[in-house]
Design a protein around this nucleic acid. Structure first.
Length: 888
DNA sequence: ATACCTACGTA
DNA sequence: CGTACGTAGGTATA
């Protein structure tokens, strides 16, 4: 049996992407950031189909470099009729190329040539070298490439999901001429899309007839005199066109290229890179398809040996053990408590069922039944400082706590490491990380099935994966991130766990009273609002409000959003100015009342048996390094309004405690900016002890600090804060309701006095563009991929994020360091007082009787000393029976 | 039921 | 056309 020919697949990237662009609805393929992806999606989808159906052994995609080539030099009007490329298409091609590179697919382009010339060259060489060649292009000129070894796949009108196959026979059937004769026909007929006019009155029928008779254009023109009638005259008159067309539509088959067919062997994809790119493009189903096809390719032996080797390690056999055997095993495997072991806790219905423990070479399953006496070894090891690797350690710690078990020695948390590597991504499961970083698939039972088909992995084997995964993650982390991991994030795990377990006492009575009062109020306001418009509507429905405001009341249109026109507070306030109406005021009041009421209700249902609310902190919840709070969110409890503060007053010092203590950093982000920018003016402002905004205002407006008016101070304050967010003059003008020109002037004045700030902010973005990431004072990184984007919206969004990240992230580092110190000192001093909440720049404590002074000292020192900046860290303290009263 | 959008609370 | 979050209700899809 003859050996099968290798298959060389050659794709015209631009033409296929363009076809896909028009085949798929633009609006259905947009990322959350506004990047259009329909062309990329269509292209990759088509590509995956081809990989699956044709199983190419060799593969390349060719792109045009620009719309200019030797053809436009020869004939300037070539392709001149083509309109502007749609803006939604621009920018998709570089991303497509990136995706292809991640899939380890070669892309080719050549200055002065079109993609089709590259295809022609490779097809010719491929056929000569014994390949079965498949050419995919939407350009009819490529028909000339078809022969016994070369087949053309051409997208039909419906787009790129179905490709029509043209081999020699199919071409003859369709056009009545041999493939190599197609350009002769095209030269006569002309090609509108390339702006190549043909002979007037000559269509496909006539051209085919002539070529069937004469074979080539050259022959035909030699016998042009023999052609009668108007078309014959036209041919003679316009033979220049024909000659030119024929010259231009001949594809070049000997372009000099860096690769020959043999260099285009299909390679294994880079799973990490593919996931990164596809994540960014928000391609979920395509990602699955890529990995599925890739898996099949690996089975078929197409993937090179190197990629195969890394998956060759197999899990150790799980041994079940308890008590003395376990004690000995733990000691050996951990080298007397010095070597980290993976730890996985198995639970059923929240009850601990057992423990999987593993080193790199051995794994053990330890079944757990509470109350049995023979667990000393296990309990000792768990509670000891012997290092352990876990996934989502905080959750495990809390689970164990509820089972009455203590856990210490958390030395690594794969969820944290993964977040430090890619802080913008949402938390992944252990299985997800193993798949991503180790390229192996863990069986995960389908939670929707009562009797799962796939049996879950033994926790002991999961623990073994933890050890491998932690090593892989550590290897990928840079030194700065490693120190953040080691010095901040990992030690913070038990601290946050304790805060969550402690919770904070909340008065159900205060909330209940507030709820009913707001309820009555909201109902009254609603009635009055209905009276104003003569009917009842759902005031909480933006859609119904739009009807009332813009149709019924005929108000001027506000700024538009995806579902119509905005009815948010800002828009309503603007409306009230232009077109005052009592309904607007009532609506705003109703919003206020119901919003606070909704918060109150959420809190009420969150109060536990212990009269306390236990939030959950998400340590991997933000891209900058902040922690977030959920279920319920205690980081957005109202404070700005009077009723808002009533909510705060429901948060109390618990039974047996004297008072609440709040401690916050004042203007920490501005201080960090002063430190990072080394701006002398700003540094002096903080060292002077003068009110920051007053100081800055005095400099900007050229008056004495005492003469800074409240208006001036407000403007300065808005600008100072806005700077750290990448605020524009436009944005500042909107916020302060002043002219753009005035805002611009204000900013100019600011930078004239505090020039180093501007230089710093500019430098951050520039550096990030070079490095691909930003860094905080303590070494935390945040990667950015869109700083070089040609899409302005994407790029400028990324720039503002990059500008803000070192500032917000450093502030997060600092308060986390303070929390670690304070927690350690409270425990070292044996105080009963405890840290309860963190709200980004504020900490809330519960003070035990008689400990106020000691605690105050620890907190102040811990917070002020959390970083050595070129300006002091100012800490404000306050105490009181409730959170509102404890504010200062 | 689920996914998206708008709106809005905090730092 | 200002960063970072979480939650809830309405609405349109399945």
């Amino acid at each position: 049996m003859p050996e099968e020919k290798p298959t060389l697949l050659l794709i015209d990237g631009h033409s296929l992407a363009f076809r896909a662009f028009y085949a798929l609805p633009v609006d259905s393929f947009v990322t959350r950031d506004g990047q259009h992806t329909n062309a990329i999606h269509g292209f990759i989808s088509m590509l995956l189909n081809l990989l699956q159906q044709q199983k190419p052994t060799h593969l390349a995609v060719a792109f045009d470099i620009s719309r200019y080539s030797f053809r436009t030099r020869e004939y300037a009007e070539y392709k001149g009729t083509r309109g502007e490329t749609p803006p939604e298409f621009v920018g998709q091609v570089p991303l497509l190329e990136e995706a292809l590179h991640a899939m380890n697919i070669r892309t080719l382009s050549k200055e002065d040539f079109e993609a089709d010339d590259i295809l022609a060259t490779l097809a010719t060489r491929g056929a000569a070298e014994g390949y079965r060649v498949l050419v995919v292009s939407g350009d009819r000129d490529t028909i000339q490439l078809v022969d016994d070894d070369v087949t053309l796949l051409y997208p039909n009108v419906r787009g790129v999901s179905e490709l029509k196959t043209y081999d020699t026979d199919a071409v003859i059937e369709r056009y009545g001429i041999r493939p190599e004769q197609y350009p002769e026909i095209a030269a006569l007929v002309g090609e509108t899309s390339d702006n190549l006019p043909g002979v007037d009155k000559v269509g496909e029928k006539t051209a085919v007839k002539w070529i069937q008779q004469y074979g080539t254009v050259e022959e035909l023109l030699a016998h042009a005199d023999a052609i009668t009638g108007v078309v014959g005259q036209n041919l003679r008159d316009q033979q220049d066109r024909v000659v030119r067309n024929r010259r231009l539509n001949r594809l070049v088959r000997d372009v000099e290229l860096p690769y020959g067919p043999a260099d285009l062997e299909r390679e294994a994809i880079d799973p990490t890179a593919v996931r990164a790119v596809f994540d960014r493009l928000q391609f979920r189903t395509l990602l699955d398809r890529v990995f599925k096809i890739e898996g099949a390719a690996a089975d078929a032996g197409l993937v090179d040996a190197e990629a195969g080797e890394s998956t060759a390690i197999s899990a150790p056999v799980v041994r079940t053990m308890i008590d003395e055997e376990l004690a000995k095993w733990l000691q050996t495997q951990s080298k007397d408590g010095t070597l980290p072991l993976g730890l996985r806790i198995a639970t059923v219905g929240g009850q601990v069922e057992g423990f999987g423990i593993a080193s790199l070479t051995e794994s053990a399953w330890v079944p757990w039944a509470p109350g049995r006496p023979d667990y000393t070894a296990l309990e000792q090891w768990l509670a000891s400082d012997a290092p352990k690797y876990l996934h989502d350690a905080k959750r495990q710690l809390k689970t164990l706590h509820s089972a009455g078990l203590e856990l210490a020695g958390v030395a690594g948390d794969t969820a944290l490491s993964a977040w430090l590597l890619r802080p913008g991504n949402k938390a992944d499961s252990l299985g997800g990380l193993v798949y991503y970083y180790l390229g192996e698939t863990l069986p995960e039972p389908d939670p929707s099935q009562l009797v799962p088909e796939t049996e879950a992995l033994n926790p002991a084997t999961e623990a073994w994966y933890l050890v491998r995964l932690q090593a892989e993650l550590d290897a990928r982390l840079d030194p700065g991130s490693l120190s953040v991991q080691h010095d901040i994030e990992v030690p913070l795990v038990p601290v946050l766990a304790r805060m969550e377990l402690q919770g904070i006492t909340v008065s159900a009575d205060v909330l209940g009273e507030l709820n009913s009062r707001l309820g009555t109020q909201a109902a009254e306001i609603a009635q009055r609002a209905y009276a104003e418009i003569g009917r009842e509507v759902n005031l909480g429905s933006p859609k119904q409000l739009q009807e009332v405001l813009f149709d019924q009341l005929g108000m001027p249109k506000t700024r538009s959003n995806k579902t119509g026109y905005s009815t948010d507070a800002q828009a309503l306030a603007d409306l009230q100015e232009q077109h005052p109406h009592p309904f607007l005021e009532l609506l705003l009041q109703h919003r206020d009342a119901t919003k606070i009421r909704q918060i109150v209700e959420t809190l009420q249902t969150a109060i536990g048996q212990d009269a306390r609310i236990h939030t959950t902190y998400e340590q991997t919840g933000s891209a900058t390094g902040r922690i977030s709070s959920n279920d319920p969110n205690l980081q957005n409890i109202p404070v700005k309004t009077e009723v808002g503060r009533e909510v705060r007053s429901a948060f109390l010092a618990g039974e047996g405690f004297e008072t609440l203590l709040t401690a916050d950093y004042s203007q920490i982000e501005m201080r960090i900016m002063a430190h990072l920018s080394e701006d002398e003016g700003l540094i002096e402002a903080f060292r002077s002890g003068e009110d920051l905004h007053r100081f800055v205002g005095a400099r900007i407006f050229g008056v004495a600090p005492a003469d800074v008016t409240p208006t001036m101070r407000t403007k300065v304050k808005a600008m100072s804060y806005g700077l750290a967010y990448g605020l524009s003059a436009f944005g500042l003008s909107k916020q302060l309701r002043i002219e753009v020109a005035e805002a611009r002037e204000l900013m100019a004045d600011y930078f004239a006095r505090f020039g180093a700030v501007r230089e710093y902010l500019r430098g951050v973005v520039e550096q990030a563009r070079v490095d691909g990431y930003t860094t905080t004072i303590f070494g935390r990184r945040r990667p950015f991929s869109d700083l070089g984007s040609t899409n302005r919206v994407l790029r400028e969004n990324a720039e503002r994020q990059a500008l803000n990240s070192p500032i917000q992230g450093s502030a997060a580092d600092i308060i986390k360091r303070a929390m670690l110190t304070i927690d350690a000192e409270i425990r070292a001093a044996g105080l009963a007082s405890r840290m309860l909440l963190q709200v980004h720049d504020e900490l809330v404590f519960e003070v035990a009787p008689g400990e106020r002074e000691a605690l105050t000292g620890i907190v102040t020192a811990g917070m002020a000393g959390a970083a050595e900046l070129s300006v002091p860290l100012d800490v404000q303290l306050g105490t009181g029976p409730n959170w509102d009263a404890a504010a200062h």
